[in-house]
Simulated assay, not measured.
Amino acid sequence: MSAVLTVEHLSRSFGAIKAVDDVSFSLEQGELLALIGPNGAGKSTCFNMLMGQLKPTGGVVKLNGEKITGLLPRQIWRKGVGRTFQITATYSSMTVVENVQMSLISHHRRIYSMLPYAHKLYRTRALELLDTVGMADQADRHCAVLAYGDLKRLELAVALAHEPKLLLMDEPTAGMAPRERIALMQLTADIVRDQGVSCLFTEHDMDVVFAHAHRIMVLNRGQLIADGSVEEIRNNPQVQEVYLGGGMLFHAAEEKADA
Rank of each mutant, 00 (worst) to 15 (best):
R215D: 06
I191C: 04
A157D: 09
F210K: 01
G222W: 12
A174H: 09
G196Y: 02
K165Q: 15
P172E: 06
L167D: 00
Q195T: 05
D227W: 11
Q223G: 04
V209K: 07
V197W: 01
V158I: 15
D190G: 09
L168A: 06
V208A: 07
K165Y: 00
L156Q: 12
A189S: 15
A161T: 03
D205A: 10
F210E: 09
M217A: 01
L187V: 08
D170G: 02
V218Q: 11
R181N: 08
V158R: 15
I191P: 10
V218G: 06
A161P: 02
T188C: 15
D207R: 13
A189P: 01
K165G: 14
M176T: 06
H162T: 15
H204W: 08
T173V: 15
I191L: 14
L168R: 08
L160S: 06
L168D: 08
D170N: 03
I225A: 06
E203C: 13
R181E: 11
V197H: 07
G228S: 11
E163Y: 02
I225T: 07
A177N: 14
E180Y: 00
L200Y: 04
L200G: 07
E163N: 14
G175P: 14
D227R: 07
G175D: 15
L167K: 08
I225E: 13
G175E: 14
D190C: 04
R193G: 00
V192P: 00
V209G: 10
A157Q: 12
G175S: 09
I225F: 10
F210H: 07
M206S: 05
G228N: 14
H162A: 15
V209R: 07
R215E: 06
N220T: 08
P164K: 03
F201S: 10
H162V: 12
R179G: 00
L156W: 04
A211M: 08
L168K: 05
I182N: 12
E203N: 14
A159T: 09
P172K: 06
L156M: 14
V158G: 00
T202F: 00
A161L: 02
V158E: 05
I216C: 01
L200S: 07
R181D: 10
T202M: 02
I191F: 04
I182L: 12
S198D: 02
L156G: 08
L184F: 10
L166D: 03
P172Q: 07
G228E: 12
A211V: 02
E203S: 08
E171D: 13
P164E: 11
G228F: 11
A177T: 11
E171W: 04
D190R: 14
L156F: 03
